[in-house]
Computed example of a mutant assay.
Amino acid sequence: MAKRPPGSRWRVIVSAAVLVLVLGGLVALAYFSPLMSVRSVEVTGTTTVGADEVLRVAQVPQGAPLLQVDTAVIAGRVSKLPAVESVNVTRGYPSTLTIEVTERTPVVVVERPPGIGVMDRLGMVYLTFDSVKALPKDLRGLPMLQMSDPAAGNPTTVAALTVVQELPDWLRSRVTVVEAGSPSDVSLQLRSGRKVVWGDAERTPDKAEALRHLLTVEGREYNVSSPEFASVR
């Protein structure tokens, strides 16, 4: 076996030490240097929430080195905005902080005495208003969910929200009320006054297609809970 030349071991040790010092210096430069400090903040994903409001709540320390900025704290502040579902804050070197917002998706309205609450896809009531008339125009078309104690994680609530979200556009726009007695007992009230017995949250495309044909027949109640055996009465 060839022997390592004298002194080569020390050269390796010295080279490694120099590399560690260089890397440490670069980390220190990034951590403390104003050259890599926050000079711009970008807000993405907002539509109903104003970017200015996000920036106001975020309280980003302008001029602070990027590595010293606590992104989790900033995300926590922004997530307290009612219409925000989740937040992701990332660093973009050399000097940009990006706040990526995912807004809540309004699905239904529910009674919240003495007013009305807007419920998102997760079952969270994140906005409340004095009455239906007080709702912003873009929320007035949401159906009313009628059930006992609607809440996030409640199986019946989950089923009702799933049904509404998976309805095709032509049908969702006609629904005014969603009634849910259990996860397998969901029904829809249409603007025409007709009732649709939907059943559970399964097979929405098949049920919607069956209903589309069935609505050409006069009736008061349309049952598509089993789309192969849809009926009218």
Score class of each variant (00 low, 15 high):
residue 225 S to P: 06
residue 172 R to D: 09
residue 124 M to Q: 12
residue 152 A to Y: 02
residue 15 S to M: 11
residue 60 V to E: 11
residue 50 G to H: 04
residue 10 W to R: 14
residue 160 A to K: 00
residue 101 V to T: 06
residue 213 H to Y: 13
residue 41 V to W: 03
residue 5 P to Y: 07
residue 99 I to Q: 06
residue 83 A to M: 10
residue 91 R to M: 04
residue 216 T to P: 03
residue 46 T to V: 15
residue 231 S to L: 08
residue 47 T to M: 11
residue 86 S to I: 08
residue 95 S to Y: 09
residue 173 S to E: 15
residue 182 S to F: 02
residue 103 E to Q: 03
residue 227 P to H: 03
residue 196 V to T: 08
residue 208 A to G: 05
residue 103 E to P: 03
residue 89 V to P: 04
residue 29 L to D: 10
residue 132 V to F: 12
residue 67 L to W: 13
residue 165 Q to S: 12
residue 231 S to Q: 09
residue 139 L to T: 00
residue 215 L to V: 05
residue 83 A to H: 08
residue 150 P to G: 04
residue 38 V to T: 10
residue 156 T to S: 00
residue 223 N to Q: 08
residue 133 K to E: 15
residue 31 Y to S: 11
residue 108 V to D: 06
residue 111 E to V: 13
residue 12 V to T: 12
residue 62 Q to N: 13
residue 154 N to G: 09
residue 32 F to M: 08
residue 38 V to C: 09
residue 59 Q to Y: 03
residue 67 L to R: 01
residue 182 S to A: 15
residue 218 E to K: 11
residue 175 V to E: 05
residue 17 A to V: 12
residue 164 V to T: 00
residue 176 T to V: 15
residue 23 L to H: 05
residue 64 A to K: 15
residue 202 E to W: 11
residue 12 V to W: 13
residue 23 L to D: 02
residue 183 P to K: 05
residue 42 E to C: 05
residue 173 S to Q: 15
residue 204 T to M: 11
residue 66 L to E: 05
residue 136 P to S: 08
residue 61 P to W: 07
residue 3 K to R: 14
residue 212 R to K: 14
residue 175 V to W: 02
residue 226 S to A: 13
residue 195 K to I: 14
residue 15 S to E: 08
residue 84 V to R: 06
residue 215 L to Y: 01
residue 118 V to F: 01
residue 43 V to N: 03
residue 106 P to D: 02
residue 88 N to E: 15
residue 185 D to A: 15
residue 26 L to E: 04
residue 7 G to C: 09
residue 173 S to L: 10
residue 233 R to A: 05
residue 217 V to T: 14
residue 14 V to S: 09
residue 14 V to G: 07
residue 154 N to F: 10
residue 205 P to G: 07
residue 160 A to H: 02
residue 2 A to N: 11
residue 116 I to K: 00
residue 31 Y to N: 08
residue 95 S to T: 14
residue 161 L to T: 09
residue 220 R to Q: 13
residue 183 P to S: 04
residue 175 V to F: 01
residue 48 T to P: 01
residue 222 Y to R: 03
residue 68 Q to A: 14
residue 197 V to P: 06
residue 163 V to Q: 07
residue 108 V to G: 02
residue 208 A to D: 00
residue 178 V to T: 05
residue 142 L to E: 01
residue 108 V to N: 00
residue 121 R to D: 14
residue 200 D to Y: 04
residue 2 A to Y: 13
residue 192 S to V: 00
residue 25 G to Y: 08
residue 199 G to S: 07
residue 163 V to K: 04
residue 133 K to I: 08
residue 137 K to L: 13
residue 49 V to I: 11
residue 67 L to D: 07
residue 14 V to P: 07
residue 85 E to N: 14
residue 194 R to S: 14
residue 169 D to L: 10
residue 198 W to E: 06
residue 204 T to L: 08
residue 121 R to E: 11
residue 176 T to F: 02
residue 97 L to R: 01
residue 177 V to D: 13
residue 73 V to C: 02
residue 226 S to P: 04
residue 198 W to R: 04
residue 229 F to C: 04
residue 48 T to F: 10
residue 210 A to Q: 05
residue 40 S to I: 02
residue 131 S to C: 02
residue 29 L to R: 06
residue 221 E to L: 09
residue 42 E to T: 13
residue 66 L to W: 07
residue 143 P to H: 02
residue 127 L to M: 09
residue 6 P to W: 12
residue 163 V to F: 07
residue 227 P to L: 07
